[in-house]
Amino acid sequence: MEFVNNIFVNIADLCRALFVWLLNLLGLPVGLAEVAMVAVYWLGIVIVCVFCALFYVIWERKLAGYIQRRPGPNRLGPNGWFHTVGDAIKLVMKEDIVPDGADKNVHLLAALLAFVPPMLALAAMPFGEGMTALDLELGVVYIMAVTTLASLPVLCAGYASNNKFAMMGAMRVVNQAISYEVPQALCILSVIMVAGTFNLNQIIDWQTGNIWLVCLQPVAFVVYLITALAECNRAPFDLPEGESELTAGVFTEYSGMRYALFYLAEYCNMFVAAGLATTLFLGGFTGPFLPGWVWFLLKTFVIMSFFIWVRWSFPRIRADHVLTFCWKVLVPLMLANVLVTGVVVYLLA
């Protein structure tokens, strides 16, 4: 079990040893090995992103099917698990349409940059023991800062499309993203106050030493999940993508591979949110018997399934209710939570 637990760490060490040997052979300074390792870590994160997106696309369709009393995609591959392959191949070969009056550069850039924020966030995510690519002292703050960026490509997409529906969607995205940052920050603040550190690995250690933070901060956990849905533009907060109101909302003018990038980036954003929830509240990669990274994947799977379940169950919230809910319900609730947490921590310390 130790071997499986450390398998990725061992692979990384092997790569580092290989680079060191290569550099010694070529007579270059050994410090360059670390620079080369950046490329290896980045490759690992890209692989994780791509696989999670591909997996969760089909899992969403199948789970939606089970909720709706039907089988879901079940023809291609064993029980239908390879349907995303067909989707990917088709999206690659579609014609690329850029509408006439659209801003061509921003239209393309928005699609390309959609994947960047989740990749940056996953760089600091602890996948397992010693499997954090970027173990920052301010890990939590870094991830929060980077996930805020995730709504920027969506805004650019809506703005650049020369389409009223897209513009409406873009405005709604900004509304939501900015507003729901505040309760999210307060949730994370509550966790940090209890654990006493910003470092993600140390938060996990604290939880291993004491108790999972979901038991100490249940309100913060629930509010965190709600704000995560809002940040990722998932139902019931999926107004930017409108659907029954206005065709495809922000992504109305996106076709083919550009649309695929947004589509997959949405799942990566959700994966980041689920990963952060796991790390902060559910004890991260710790657990008996199985290797750490398997536990991490299992826990994020549970939270992602919860996100998908909520998406297919609830109606959409109206645009003005989104804001009243945030500012009049969540923010006072979280401020009260922070107050109570602070008092308790002070008394017990």
């Binding site: 099917g65 709706q68 009393r69 089988p71 995609p73 996106y254």
Partner: peptide, 23 residues
């Protein structure tokens, strides 16, 4: 597309609203 006949078994249930994303 509903439960009894279920076109999604073949992967075709993703009805897109925008013509840009439809085949």
């Amino acid at each position: 597309t509903q439960s009894r006949f279920d076109m999604s078994r073949f992967g075709y249930e993703v009805f897109r609203n925008s013509p840009r994303q439809a085949d």
